[in-house]
Amino acid sequence: MNGNTGKKTLPEVAIELQGVVKTFGRQRVLDGIDLKVMAGQTTVIVGASGQGKSVILKHMLGLVRPDEGRVLVFGQDLSTISRKELNEIRMNFGVLFQNAALFDSMTVFDNVALPLRERTRKSDAEIRSLVDEKLKLMDLFGSESKYPAQLSGGMRKRVGLARALVLDPKVVFFDEPTTGLDAHKSNEIYRLFYQTQQQLGYTAVIVSHDVPKIFKLSDHVALLAQGQIQGCMPPEQFQLSDNPLIREYVETTMGPIYSSEKEEPGLHETV
């Protein structure tokens, strides 16, 4: 706990992207990304669909190599370190993929138990109690013998979360953790994130479309647009920023849902 408060007063950089450029074929997805993720804090990346948020996460995880620029995790350049060193860094990671990426020929229980079985020397009984605890947290009790194909989309997400959190990681990466969940469940999940973050003081990188709810959870919000990070700042500042792209984003996501008839004539005619 003390370490946690210490970190809050003296934030260090956990992950840093420097001028990261990535092209797929002719499409330049990332066009010079500069982003710092502070240790012990929650950084949320927002942006329209298809802008490259998931690609940024994959760079941080070392799954994708940048064409230009560097990715530093705990000060180490991912493209220069050995596989072994990369694995040592990844020991601290808990990852939720956008599609959950569950092992589809294993049951829910085995999915969550896998990191414990492969990475620790815990006994079967210990593993069982740890997995049960995480499944209960995710409200998945009773589904442990189902296969991923037998779950709903939201359940799959929650299994992915349970699996990501089961080893109490130091850095978590969540790609749209609450997409597909009802408001009640996503609130529960946010509360859980908040509590575990308070307890463990982990560093979190969250990609989300759940604006503005996700702001309550975040220490920093970064907007990805046009292949670049348009500013990474605390949420209060973010909502008041005068960067035109951020303004536009804030207005479209947090503004009134229906425009008045005056602004967009014809909008209500067909309804």
Partner: peptide
């Protein structure tokens, strides 16, 4: 087919991210 499907659905990436070779 088994490994290919695991590759396609990012299960191999997931393994790597868990530091499981």
């Amino acid at each position: 087919a088994e490994i290919g499907i695991m590759r396609n659905s990012e299960q191999i990436d997931a393994l790597e991210c868990m530091a499981i070779d």
